[in-house]
Write a protein that binds this DNA or RNA. Structure first.
Lengths: 208, 208
DNA sequence: ACGTGTTTCCAACACTTGATGGAAGCATTT
DNA sequence: AAATGCTTCCATCAAGTGTTGGAAACACGT
């Protein structure tokens, strides 16, 4: 029995899938509490009842979006892992950073949704919670910072969290940070990558 | 002619001041959109009309809170600057970090409000925007990373932003991060400081 | 052409929210 | 005691929200 989310992915033109795509976009821009079901319906170009017919409660739709985003990240992490295998630690880190930044900068709703998940007292973030722990572990193993998923030191986890969050913040708060750095978008991306590499490399190569 | 905010500070027991304090607390916990004027009034223990009588629109009250918090940060930065003057760069950084962490961990509404300011599409964050640029410049000068406020390289600003944000995130998202690190509060603070120092020191001592 | 099951929309409901008008309470001066 | 000005509260409004019932439109096998 396929979940609603799986069903929506089977046909990207289905109403279910179109609603999910709009929901991801709008939730990603305004957050859960500042998004109304009417806004999403309008973005799809349908009546609000049609939305409820397909997805039920607002919260259910939101959770589907979070799951969708979580899967997308996992997918990207896997892709990165394939690309960096065999390289030296420093090279791995740099490639990983580059790829992740490019992905997130072109899908800004992803970091937005994750950060909204942290801070808002919004509906239970259980789903996201589990995923995050999972992602952190995956990053650690992919970067060979730990022998396996169950043996990651608190310090290593904290450093991954720190870097991961710095990435998310730079992207989500671009509209806020960019004026402060007085750069255009292209240069901003450059500076962000540079800054991250600067922080990242010592953080993970120092005591190895 | 004193501003409403100044007026409220003159007597901390005045109704204006009590409302401001509650507003800071509640806005800091739930963010602008998730806070109702009724919640604040209830926290003070007064009727909602009394709140409107003293502060007018919700947005005005919010802006007063942001200004209040901005001033508090500036005050803390000044205190830190006095404490670190004369020390070596590394010592300055470590002391600054320690003091700022202690302050923010015991006033979690401060990082919350700042981060809400970044991410929410809420009312114009102009006030906060100006303050932030100012704070970054002050940090740079206090840490002697730049000769004066008007000559801070983009790279230096980006690094300060990165570290500053990492601090805010670790504190605001404590409820989210701490389970992932499986530590108690005391140990969490320790790990955060340690991680920050680890990131901070190379970030500001490497190319000086 | 007809029936059946699915999909879409219109209209409405109950509730919350920001905001206000006006009456009552309180303090101070005359 | 009366008058005045400030403060507080009750009752209410208008707009917006999540959600639903039911009627129309549609697709499609018979």
């Amino acid at each position: 029995m396929p979940s609603p989310l799986e069903k929506a992915r089977q046909d990207p033109n289905s109403m279910k899938a179109r609603i999910l795509a709009s929901a991801r976009k709008v939730f990603g821009e305004y957050g859960y509490n500042n998004t109304t079901t009417r806004m999403i319906a309008k973005d799809v170009g349908i009546d609000i009842s049609t939305l409820y017919y397909h997805w039920g409660e607002k919260q259910d739709l939101y959770e589907a979006v979070l799951e969708d985003v979580g899967d997308a990240i996992q997918h990207k992490l896997n892709e990165i892992e394939r690309n960096v295998s065999g390289q030296s630690l420093t090279t791995r880190l740099e490639i990983a950073l580059d790829m992740m930044c490019d992905y997130l900068f072109s899908h800004p709703e992803v970091p937005n949704l994750i950060l909204y998940g942290y801070f808002n007292k919004a509906p239970n973030g259980v789903t996201l919670d589990i995923k995050m722990t999972e992602h952190i572990a995956n990053i650690a193993v992919a970067m060979e910072l730990a022998p396996n998923k169950n043996q990651i030191s608190v310090q290593a986890r904290a450093r991954i969290l720190a870097v991961w969050n710095t990435v998310l913040n730079f992207i989500s708060a671009e509209n806020f940070f960019r004026p402060m750095l007085e750069t255009d978008r292209e240069h901003y991306i450059q500076v962000v990558k540079e800054t991250l590499k600067f922080i990242l490399v010592p953080a993970f190569t120092a005591d190895k």
